[in-house]
Design a protein around this nucleic acid. Structure first.
Length: 418
RNA sequence: GUGGUCGUAGCUCAGCUGGUAGAGCAUCCGGUUGUGGUCCGGAAUGUCGCGGGUUCGAGCCCCGUCGAUCACCCCA
């Protein structure tokens, strides 16, 4: 047996890159926080039935990509392939839908889909998502989209675009799908494509082949089937986005992978990520809560792919600001002062000052090199002299200047400097 | 899930038509007594993804396998 390796298709983040990952995730979350969303911390596995009913049996996600297993009590458990169903379950279970509306929450964590991996498509991946439940003001739709766009702007992403559409209500969709199927039945298609259309006729809009594309050009468009109310709602969403200065493209042949979407739907597509170009998406879901046994409330939310957004930042050459750099790096001179240095570091940390120490038996030069690499703002050499005098030279690593400090009150002097 | 490409030191890669491995960066040490970033010198490091096979001999050829990756598919 050779060495262990990570399971197929999982992404891992470790220094230095983990800092970039963390920065991306925090930026996404921060955008939700400033818009009034609060944390929802949920399990990564749920009753299999929740996804089957919530996401839809006919979707690829449910029918062939779920990690499903039986627990020791014989229950069928599934690793969450998406976030919305779990949020709905929890909202219903804890009666949040009976309180003040809308319920606005964000979540962040791992999701699981057993697909064939490639860059940007992982079997365990990270999403940050938000949900606004209980009201169907078009302004909330615009807010949700804006939360994502604001985060992208904060990150400095430029090479992407936003697509929006309206999928209408259930009745509309039924009428439309019927006509679309009829249209498709007139086309000369191969077997596998017919099977695909059978499952979800909208899929053909997404086909990459030119001949299919041109065949679908004259297909009926859902937008033409919208009820006056749906159309008005969509107009209001668009005009609010316009007021926000958010640019978008209306894509009236957008296909979403989850069954529960109704009304407003949207996607964020990046241009430098190859085939896995969707960095996020979402939409409104009218019947979902009721479907899961809760009250008949509407909701809207998105899921953003943290892995892909990080990839997008890298593709655009975006520099991640150096966060959390150390305030102080202590270099002990020899064994005799090591204990003192470590204790001093411990005490300073208790004051909230970030400190690290040159561990190992490094010579002074090596210790200073370590101080440099650590990115600490100050370095302090501790030797027998310093312990004897109770004073030391605090070196500013950027300017190279030193100031004399009293070791006993070091925390006070440092707090003034940082 | 289908098809293609790739897999050599920590990282990025070189290795001509098969003769048992190299560079740059990173790491560590040093350039005379206690201060880093430049420069100079030196050192360490690989079961050439793994397992079979062909061959006198394989990193280079064949098969399998694992993983990554590209496209399809799907989607975050």
């Amino acid at each position: 047996m050779s060495k262990f390796q990570a399971p197929k298709g999982v992404s891992e983040y470790f220094p230095e890159r983990s800092r970039h990952f963390e920065f991306v995730r925090e930026t996404l979350i921060q955008s939700a926080r400033v818009s009034g969303y609060e944390l929802m911390e949920l399990p990564v596995f749920e009753d299999t039935e929740l996804f089957a009913r919530g996401v839809g049996e006919s979707t690829d996600v449910v029918s062939k990509e779920m990690y499903t297993f039986e627990d020791r009590g014989g229950r069928s458990i599934t690793l969450r392939p998406e976030g919305t169903a779990g949020v709905m379950r929890s909202v219903i279970e804890h009666n949040l839908d009976r309180g003040q509306l809308p319920v606005k929450v964000w979540y962040s964590g791992q999701f699981f889909r057993a697909e064939r991996p490639q860059a940007g498509r992982y079997r365990q991946f990270y999403q940050v998502g938000i949900e606004a439940i209980g009201l169907n003001d078009p302004e909330i739709d615009a807010e949700v989209i804006a939360v994502a766009v604001m985060a992208f702007e904060k990150l400095g992403l430029k090479d992407y675009h936003t697509e929006i559409t309206s999928l209408g209500d259930a009745v509309t969709r039924e009428r439309y799908t019927k006509d679309l199927r009829e249209y498709i039945s007139t086309l000369a298609l191969d077997e596998s494509t017919i099977a695909r259309a059978e499952l979800n006729p909208l899929r053909l809009f997404d086909d990459k082949r030119d001949e299919i594309r041109s065949m679908m050009e004259k297909a009926p468009v859902l937008m033409d089937y919208l009820t006056p109310e749906s159309a008005a709602h969509f107009e209001e969403v668009k005009s609010t986005l316009d007021q926000f200065g958010i640019t978008y493209q209306v894509n009236n042949r957008m296909v979403r992978g989850l069954d529960y979407y109704t009304g407003t739907a949207f996607e964020f597509v990046h241009h430098k990520l190859g085939a896995q170009s969707g960095i996020g998406g979402g939409g409104r879901y009218d019947g979902l809560m009721r479907q899961l046994g809760g009250s008949d409330l509407s909701g809207i939310g998105f899921g953003l792919g943290v892995d892909r957004i990080l990839l997008a930042c890298e593709a655009e050459g975006i520099e991640v600001p150096q966060e959390n750099s150390l305030a102080l790096f202590i270099v002990p001179m020899g064994e005799s002062v090591k204990g003192f240095a470590v204790l001093k570091a411990h005490q300073l940390r208790a004051h909230g000052i970030s400190v690290d120490v040159a561990y190992g038996d490094r010579a002074l030069k090596g210790g200073m090199k370590a101080a440099d690499k650590s990115g600490a703002r100050f370095a302090l050499v501790l030797g027998d002299d310093e312990i004897a005098s109770g004073k030391g030279e605090l070196k500013n690593m950027q300017t190279g200047d030193s100031v004399s400090v009293t070791l006993r009150t070091l925390h006070e002097e440092l707090l003034k400097l940082i």
